[in-house]
Design a protein around this nucleic acid. Structure first.
Length: 264
DNA sequence: AGGACTGTTCCGCG
DNA sequence: GCGCGGAACAGTCC
């Protein structure tokens, strides 16, 4: 699924496609999505915003909340209907905007704008790591009490929102930290390194992937891999020349350089 | 054929 | 009670 930077890109795109325009119609192509937009037809759409990995699109007095899970995307259908579209919004003066989601794990909800805060309050989701500056002390405080490895801790949405499987590997790489290091073993310098690595990674992805549609590196053969270690097992580390390896943590793939990410 | 996959939630275990 | 890891969800692509 899209992680924080990809959802940020999609949010900016949706804002450009929808903000200030009227919703002319909605097609629910996958009833399992379970969202009824009939009451929102004709309403003006406001600026989309992001919270964690959620995208929120105001429509009149309501908000459409999307979560993309593993394979979801918000796309503009400028060249016709897309395969795996689950929901299509017809937008005044703009091509349709579709929620495309191959594996259909994504979710959607439509709620009164006034209930959005309560909606998020009911989801265990910590504060945003970006764009507000966060220092090492902030990170240490957010992850205090966790005893597992740092990679899993970085992905803990209840502590800090938005970082996913790729961000966790890439953050550890940038921080020169073995992702298997236990949280209690980290020192002040490690927390500072994490604090610097996270925004650097997010902004790198925003620069690399911004465009009308985010690309999954395992999708087709087109997209170049914008990451330093993710999906680069067997390649050389661009920093020390060591070998990038793939390991499994909690059932998920982790990538790291065996040469320059010592364990704490 | 079998496994992998940018996420979340539920369950059992320690 | 809390934290952790595995399984399940689902479809496609090697």
């Amino acid at each position: 699924m899209p992680e924080l930077p990809e959802v940020e890109i999609m949010t900016r795109n949706v804002r450009r496609w929808c903000d200030g325009r009227r919703l002319l119609g909605a097609e629910l192509l996958d009833p399992a999505l379970g969202v009824d937009l009939s009451g929102a037809i004709g309403q003006a759409m406001g600026p989309a915003r992001r919270r964690g990995k959620y995208l929120c699109q105001p429509i009149g007095a309501q908000v459409l909340v999307l979560h993309f899970r593993m394979t979801g995307k918000a796309v503009v259908e400028s060249s016709g209907p897309r395969k795996h579209a689950r929901l299509r919004l017809r937008v005044e003066g703009s091509p349709p905007v579709a929620f495309v989601d191959t594996r259909r794990l994504g979710t959607a909800a439509l709620l009164p704008a006034g209930e959005l805060d309560a909606f998020f309050a009911a989801i265990p989701m910590g504060p945003e790591p970006w764009p507000e500056p966060r220092d090492g002390a902030w990170w240490q405080q957010r992850l205090v009490g966790l005893r597992g490895h740092i990679k899993g801790a970085l992905m803990n949405q209840a502590r800090v929102a938005g970082l996913g499987n790729i961000a966790a590997s890439e953050t550890c790489y940038r921080a020169r930290l073995d992702p298997r290091s236990r949280v209690p073993a980290l020192g002040a310098a490690d927390w500072d390194a994490i604090a610097a690595a996270v925004p650097a990674f997010i902004e790198h992805v925003l620069n690399e992937e911004s465009g009308p549609e985010i690309a999954y590196i395992n999708e087709g053969r087109g997209a170049a891999n914008p990451f330093d270690v993710y999906a680069r097992a067997g390649e050389r580390c661009g920093r020390c020349g060591g070998a990038v390896v793939r390991i499994v943590q909690a059932g998920r793939a982790t990538f790291l350089c065996g040469g320059c990410q010592p364990r704490r």
